[in-house]
Design a protein around this nucleic acid. Structure first.
Length: 516
RNA sequence: UCCUCGGUAGCUCAAUGGUAGAGCAUGCGGCUGUUAACCGCAGGGUUGCAGGUUCGAGUCCUGCCCGGGGAGCCA
């Protein structure tokens, strides 16, 4: 291959030029000579800027301009009028650009006419108004360089047609080349950026809580052990149990199931903080809503109570969804057309409507009233037991028809760190339930009173000595504070209407599956 | 982990216990400023794996593996 991968990378790595900057660059073509110029061989991008397909389709480049695009062939159609039509995608936006390759190109018969789905190409030509329907502009090609062929088109797993998601999961390394997974990747990026922007604009600090933790009592499910001990012949204590004192960290350690306990320490110093990082649960959960490795956002605010927490959750979700609607209209249009007709309307409604808020006690009353009216649940709702999936669905989908914040749950079914309410029966916990996915956010006001926290630890038979530093926060300048956790992939499910959480993360990790 | 449905060509799916098929994809030919193009021809199979019943099993039985949906756990 004549083309060096490095020069490709360099060319692509240039920051996008917009507005005046691009005008300067276009008018001063000498500045654009990059590594591509120094390559040998016949194809020279030379003085031309490499354009993202997004820029060309958005109309930010005027017709008649000389342009170069780099990308992968989606489809090739030949016309006996003496040309081939290539749809080339570079992933910068949903749509590919049409490249019209005349048979007068020197490599037409040898190369262009043999292009198949998946081939990597660099196309140079002028941007012109399209004669055909389906696109406003296209590239009348002067040159097409084939950078990477598809070995054997018959075995290329991603045909230009519909595939099932189950099949595409088996080729996770190639599925980003499909419409759906390209769109998911861009939506995922958009939401990630919007999340950071939301918190940054409000004075929150992003805190990098640890991935590895020695706290085996974070209380959120089964954990993955982290160890460098010899699994076959581990060191033993005189009593015969595994001697973790000889392990890497000198004690048992795990992958984190939550950054919350750690981020509380920074909350009680920087006031407004959040985490955004990977989280691990070793639960044997085989559902479309669970991953063993997922990303979680956990804001934590000081001098705040549960209502402040619910306000934050509502503003937060609305902000990132507004960003999604305005920045990824192309991808959202695709999801609405092919994946879930309701998704755009649902997100728009989400942004416009206020969240319903009710207490757990009220929620149970609603459910009992529904049962009295003949609603059938597999599990009978009753005060004191946790809400089942079917109950959560009824509340958000049928009763209210939009997100619901359920607050103040019985203390028996919630974690030790949640603040005990004055009734001594409930804690200041909240779940945000969204139609279609159920619990999208779980959070609480934290117990800031040391003596109450200790009482809760005792009640739940948790060892106080394991929570030394956590208890210190309550001894030294304690303040009311609150926070919540948002499962990032569940956010994407809700926004896009995708049905399975394994399809909104690049490389899903689930029980029995860590390929790729 | 439990319940339930499924596993047949590269992909999506048909096939009463009796010669294993179609569409798409791929290759070749035709036609065309094409756009999920269209028309014709061709190649392509250890029916998830292992046993069993039967003259005969893709089909029935047993076990296992893998996948979907639902539940639990949760985000």
């Amino acid at each position: 291959m004549r083309h060096s991968g490095l020069s490709l990378l360099r060319a692509r790595a240039r920051p996008p030029r917009t507005g005046i900057l691009r005008a300067l660059a276009d008018g001063c073509s000498g500045r654009e000579s990059g590594p591509g110029d120094r390559r040998g061989g016949g194809f020279r991008r030379g003085a031309m800027a490499v354009h993202a397909v997004r820029e060309l389709l958005a109309g930010s480049v005027s017709a008649g301009a000389e342009v170069t695009v780099q990308g992968w062939v989606r489809t090739r159609r030949d016309s006996k009028a003496g040309m081939s039509f290539l749809h080339v995608s570079d992933g910068s936006c949903f749509d590919p650009i049409q490249v019209v390759a005349p048979n007068s190109l020197p490599n037409y018969a040898e190369e262009v006419a043999r292009l198949s789905t998946g081939c990597a190409v660099v196309a140079r030509g002028s941007l012109v108004a399209s004669q055909g329907a389906g696109q406003t502009v296209e590239i009348a090609a002067d040159a097409i360089e084939v950078v990477g062929w598809v070995d054997d088109p018959e075995t290329y797993p991603v045909a230009a047609k519909r595939h099932t998601f189950e099949y595409l999961r088996e080729i996770a390394h190639l599925r980003p080349r499909t419409n759906t997974f390209g769109a998911v990747a861009r939506v995922r990026h958009c939401l990630s950026q919007a999340i950071h922007r939301f918190y940054h604009e409000r004075g929150f600090f992003w805190v990098h809580t640890p991935i590895i933790t020695a706290s085996d009592a974070e209380g959120a499910g089964q954990m993955f052990r982290v160890s460098t001990l010899d699994l076959v012949n581990p060191p033993r204590t005189p009593e015969g149990s595994v001697d973790f004192a000889q392990d890497f960290f000198g004690r048992e350690s795990y992958l984190t199931v939550s950054g919350q306990l750690n981020v509380e320490t920074y909350c009680c110093a920087l006031s407004k903080v959040y985490t955004f990082g990977p989280t691990f649960r070793a639960e044997n959960s085989n559902t479309s809503r669970h991953l063993a490795e997922f990303w979680m956002i956990e804001p934590e605010i000081a001098f705040a109570d549960l209502n402040d927490n619910a306000d934050l959750a509502e503003q937060f979700l609305k902000y990132v969804f507004e960003a999604l609607l305005s920045e990824r209209a192309d991808d959202m249009k695709f999801f609405a057309e092919r994946i879930d007709k309701e998704c755009v309307a649902r997100v728009e409604k989400f942004v416009a409507a206020s969240f319903e808020r009710m207490t757990y006690t009220e929620a149970v009353a609603h459910l009992e009233k529904a049962v009295a009216k003949g609603k059938k649940f597999e599990f009978r709702p009753s005060w004191g037991i946790d809400l089942q999936s079917e109950h959560e669905r009824y509340l958000s989908e049928e009763l209210v028809g939009r997100p619901v914040v359920v607050m103040n749950y019985p203390k028996e079914i919630k974690a030790f760190y949640m603040r005990l309410n004055d009734d001594e029966k409930t804690v200041a916990a909240m779940d945000v339930l969204a139609p279609g996915i159920g619990e999208i956010i779980g959070g609480s006001q934290r117990e800031e009173r040391l003596e109450v926290l200790d009482r809760r630890l005792d009640e739940m038979h948790l060892p106080k000595e394991a929570y030394g530093w956590y208890r210190d926060l309550r001894r030294y300048g304690t303040v009311p504070h609150a926070g919540f956790g948002l499962g990032f992939e569940r956010l994407i499910l809700y926004a896009t209407g995708m049905g399975n959480i394994r399809d909104v993360i690049p490389f899903p990790r689930t029980p029995g599956n860590a390929a790729f």
